[in-house]
Design a protein around this nucleic acid. Structure first.
Lengths: 209, 209, 209, 209
DNA sequence: TATGAATGAGTTTTCATTCAT
DNA sequence: TATGAATGAAAACTCATTCAT
């Protein structure tokens, strides 16, 4: 009620809320047209303000993607770490990781698309985006270790090239963000289930069917 | 499907050779940085000439991608048509399409990457790129028909959502162009074989193994 | 010579005090970075308030310099007029003017720096700053008359170009505001004395002349 | 005559000539209005081209001042080093330094004005201008050493504060660039002579000391 | 064919200023 | 009085494109 209290909480969170709104608008436009092809004015239009006004909230166009991507990656790794810490077997870990990936895609759909399409450009152009390359590397290591373990445990086929399997899954799963529409025919969870089935068992009819 | 540009004489003139060289350089840079983020000067640098000189050969930056993409799509559809015309069963058609996709990726690696990343932007921005959307649609129809036929013939599982299967395969296969390096550890053919195995049978160890 | 802005009541109201505080902050920043290179936000930061709040007190950034400069010039000319009205001989008038100049520099250090550096720009850009050019002209006339009188009276060397002598003194004396720090090794008064010694024994007719 | 030779020499020097022309225009405008208050368009107007065209020759507005100032400082220090290496006595060294200063001012009038007015701002704002502070420091050390030597040799008065004398001379001399017009009533050489007379007969030890 | 200087429209960014609270 | 979000005009800078040589 006191002005003091409003300053300490109310104002801060109002600002954070506004930032989040603006970033959501930016993410949608960046994902749709590509970061480089999107003008700051288009972002501002989408947010319902004028171009210059964005600079009250953000340093630069660059900072906007930065915040969009780091927010997504932080959430993604928190989820992955939860899965890895659960101490499941290889197959169940794989299932959980794919489920987690789709959950994350659902929550950060546009950020995921941006991450897919713009990472190479951003990493090549600005040092500050080096963490994108780090994340990609850690992601690969995590999956290769998992596949290794699954093969050792007899849960996964041993006749496949592990790096290839990793890329196969990664591409199939994450590119889904490009076409997935929340509230469409299938929920993210259902898509995850079907993808899991395909990854694990393939699309061929079983002999016994 | 795509506009044709042929020398009036029909011969592979020195001019056509130079165009091809320049387009190869352009494709590599566009694929690496993204079309919008690439400047004409960067293309020229990669080709070893100055920016203005490109305009002796091409109308515009736009025309360059246009030619890169249409060349690729023409080749891809020629290949697909050969496969479809062979009158194979569903499973063998699927095998042949995936093999053909990888062959095409091998031949037009950069064009494929550009096609993946830039299609939405190009289609949304210039009418002349409408044929990209047409191609995508025809591709989807071809695959859905194939999957339908395979399920009807008892070759493919019937419990999977067909559009989802299509996207799964499409994404896994074509995104490979983003990381595939000609002359790397595995040939395109080997990658195709392994991908086919995964798509058909999954990565899970079979019970009898 | 310069516009006046006085409280209607003629009292030193709280409002006037606040204005003076803000102008002091503004003067320091303008002097340090230059008027054009200083943003209103920087002024506000220096004053401990937010940018928009300055506009409760002042019409514009322009009005701030205006008030800073006119306050300084009013004081300077009041001092000079006192000296000129005292009816001293040329040499003593020169001594008193230089002493007065240093006193003024001490009292309006930042304003003096701004006046030095920004006058040409302000005069060229806004009509309202025309009085700066007037002041400069009157200053020159005052000094040339003084030098003339001193030469006529046999107090100053006659072999020097008078306009040049004027500039020499003006530049040496007033640019001191750029480096003079109140409370530093030497007081303004001491600096004035030394400067006077240097100036005088240069332009003063030698005993043997 | 051969195209090769024209490339090796002609083109390179043509480019350098153009740069110099553009920098001359820029220096005049920067000196007149102040660096921060000058727009790139104003520089371009003065050069007779469009704003964007400047960027074919220079990276940024910043780079333009950088080149203007470093060219001036290089020339100035080359001149000062010649004087210092001549091994003259203190008084003759002082004479030569002042003459050299005026020569330099004549050759780089606008650069000198920019150096005077913009150094603090440039140094405070961009690291790359740190060399301006270095130059200023070296200048001060050179003069203090000279004054010290002159006092020790009995050529200069010992009752004056050396740092103050340095500043007095520096300000009087260099600020002259602000009003000196080449081809005006007096040549730079004549101004130098008169300034020297004023300075010298002030700080010179009197015969009766 | 290629060069390189220039164009000019458009982009990102800045910033004095306004205004509802 | 002060805040802080926004405005909008102008600034710095970019870059596809042109064109005389």
């Amino acid at each position: 009620m006191s002005p003091r209290r409003r300053d300490a909480e109310g104002t801060t969170s109002a600002r954070a809320v506004r930032r989040a709104e603006l970033l959501a608008a930016a993410a949608e436009v960046f994902a749709g047209r590509g970061y480089a092809a999107t003008t700051v004015r288009e972002v501002a239009d989408a947010a319902g303000i004028l171009g210059g006004s964005l600079y009250y909230h953000f340093d630069s166009k660059e900072s906007m993607v930065e915040e969009i991507l780091s927010t997504f990656l932080d959430d993604m790794w928190a989820g992955f770490d939860r899965v890895l810490d659960a101490g499941l077997g290889a197959r169940h870990t794989l299932e959980a990781l794919i489920a987690e990936s789709f959950r994350c895609m659902d929550a950060h759909r546009h950020a995921v698309v941006i991450y897919q399409k713009e990472s190479p450009y951003l990493v090549a152009t600005w040092e500050r985006f080096g963490y994108l390359a780090d994340s990609r590397q850690r992601h690969e290591e995590m999956w290769l270790a998992l596949l290794e373990r699954g093969v050792a445990d007899g849960e996964f086929r041993s006749d496949l090239d592990r790096p290839l399997v990793y890329r196969f899954i990664r591409d199939a799963v994450w590119v889904a963000a490009s076409w997935y529409q929340p509230g469409a025919r299938m929920s993210a969870e259902e898509v995850a289930k079907q993808y899991l089935a395909m990854v694990l068992e393939g699309i061929q009819a079983s002999p016994e069917d």
